[in-house]
Amino acid sequence: MWRRRTLPAVVALLGVTGLGLITVGLTADPAQPPRPPADAPTRTQPAPDLAPLPRAAPVQVRIPAIGVRAEVVPVGADATGVLEVPPLDRPTLAGWYRHGVAPGETGNAVLVGHVDSPAGPAVFFDLGQLRAGQEIQITRADAQVTTFAVDSVRAYPKDRFPTTLVYGPADVAGLRLITCGGRFDGGTGNYVDNIIVFATRTA
């Protein structure tokens, strides 16, 4: 007897709860990427005296502190001169700016990766959590693994992108990691900031 009354109630409860969860799932706010604090400490140790490596494309980037282990593909710029990024449907890839130096060569090598995609957080989502001194390891096509230490992590408004600090010349082997951050502007479909990690080769 009780089953005759209970089963319909259970079915109704399951249905209502299920619909509620699907509604929540479809309308949930996306996770916000971490933003580096403006007063985050900076690493100031001088670069060790290391012989520069010959040019070889990077093939993998590892950042143990934020659990990143990603394949790296070469990227350039689009027809309007804007830096290319890996396709949004492959959000786990990082891109290496192939017109610049390779990681380990003298100069600043540049890697770029999405902070998120329609599927959720992407390869560099947690870049803003990195702190001075943490390690970034790059595996190159010549099988050499070169290690960089984070000097600083900064957020820059996109209309004040520090071109010279990112692409400019350097006397030592440096690394720049770029992703998006800050507030997402639904009107333009873009984040208002770029998060940039500045790092120097240590091994």
């Binding site: 998120d116 995609s117 996109k158 770029i178």
Partner: peptide, 18 residues
């Protein structure tokens, strides 16, 4: 390259677990 890097889409407005 010119200016900033367009490296995000705003994320998906969905909670896959829910």
């Amino acid at each position: 390259p010119i200016g900033a890097a367009p490296a995000g889409s705003g994320g998906g407005n969905r909670d896959n677990g829910a």
